[in-house]
């Protein structure tokens, strides 16, 4: 008996639910499905009309279908690039539910779209510039330190190469052969990650300057040697004839005459150096390339990389200009 009653009660509940669904104003699931079908067919306006049929809920009434319908409408409007209507759709939701984060974020995103493109780029630029500038300063420090070290190293290597003492010229030949013959990246890895296993641990900046300095000394060594050997033989002859020693002749006669012909290739090397400093980002140095890369990975924003390119260009342009000036001054004795 009790069993029968309970079965009847369950059946009644089931019927009531069915009736409620059928008798309720609209079947929202059905409506959403229809609107999806219309969207799939490309009839966006039809889909919108359907979605608009979901009424504003009265107080206490279930609000889910309403919010979903308006947000869907907003997305369709946004897809139609009808930003004003899309915002209006969101506003309908926000009037009832001011804390709805989906609607609020969507409005913010839509408002951003309304702003012109340069505005976005400008605000990104302002946001990224401080950390990029810090990175660029580190790049500049690396470049200046290497520019200080490598011409001295290069001069020593060049003088060693033209020395008549075989062990000296052989050693310098080996240095050039090794540092020109292996990748700079590998040399940096070796100095920063490899030397600690030999008991020498260097801070990143020191490791970077040593790596760049050695590499560029090798290149500059060959450039300086070429320049010294390109000076007319009669100059060394005359310097010897007037009683100057080899070192006096080098210091006062030969090397000063190499400056003009050294400038174009050395300028080239230093511009390559500005860009090669990007490699030290791999040994825990935060310079311009690393800063740009970090910003790019955090915000997935290409503006950071574009800005880094611009800063590199500014640096190389400044250096090109300075080297042109120095080259002119170094060769001034040849101008009549």
């Amino acid at each position: 008996m009790i069993y029968l009653v309970s079965r009847a009660f369950v059946a009644l509940l089931f019927l009531c639910t069915l009736a409620g669904n059928c008798l309720g104003a609209v079947d929202y699931d059905q409506l959403f499905r229809q609107s999806s079908d219309l969207m799939a067919l490309g009839d966006l306006d039809g889909a919108l009309t359907l979605l608009r049929q979901v009424p504003t809920p009265a107080a206490g009434e279930e609000a889910g279908p309403f919010v979903s319908s308006r947000m869907q409408a907003a997305r369709i409007h946004a897809a139609q690039e009808n930003t004003d209507s899309a915002i209006a759709d969101c506003q309908e939701v926000l009037i009832l539910f001011p804390d709805n984060s989906e609607a609020r974020n969507f409005v913010a995103a839509l408002r951003d779209q309304l702003k012109p493109g340069w505005h976005t780029v400008l605000s990104d630029t302002l946001r990224f510039l401080p950390s990029l500038a810090k990175g660029a300063l580190m790049t500049l420090m690396l470049v200046l330190c290497t520019m200080l070290v490598s011409p001295l190293g290069g001069l020593l290597i060049a003088l060693g190469r033209i020395s008549t003492l075989r062990p000296v010229s052989g050693t310098c030949w080996f240095i050039i052969w090794f540092f020109r013959g292996t990748p700079l990246l590998l040399q940096l890895f070796f100095i920063y990650y490899g030397l600690p296993s030999l008991g020498i641990t260097l801070p990143p900046f020191t490791a970077a300057v040593i790596g760049l300095g050695l590499n560029y000394s090798a290149y500059l060594g060959e450039i300086i040697r070429g320049a010294i050997q390109s000076i007319d033989h009669g100059q060394m002859e005359a310097a010897k004839a007037i009683g100057m020693s080899y070192s006096q002749a080098m210091r006062r006669v030969i090397i000063p005459q190499t400056y003009k012909r050294l400038m174009p290739p050395i300028g080239n090397e230093f511009i390559a150096l500005i860009k090669d400093t990007a490699l030290v980002s791999t040994i825990a140095m935060v310079e311009l390339m690393r800063s740009a890369d970090q910003l790019f990975n955090t915000y997935f924003n290409i503006t950071a990389l574009a800005l880094a390119a611009v800063i590199y260009l500014v640096l190389t342009t400044i250096f090109t200009f300075i080297f042109e000036k120095i080259e002119y001054r170094a060769g001034i004795y040849e101008h009549r």
Partner: peptide
Amino acid sequence: FQAFNLFP
């Protein structure tokens, strides 16, 4: 010298 070899 023939070519003067002054320091330019």
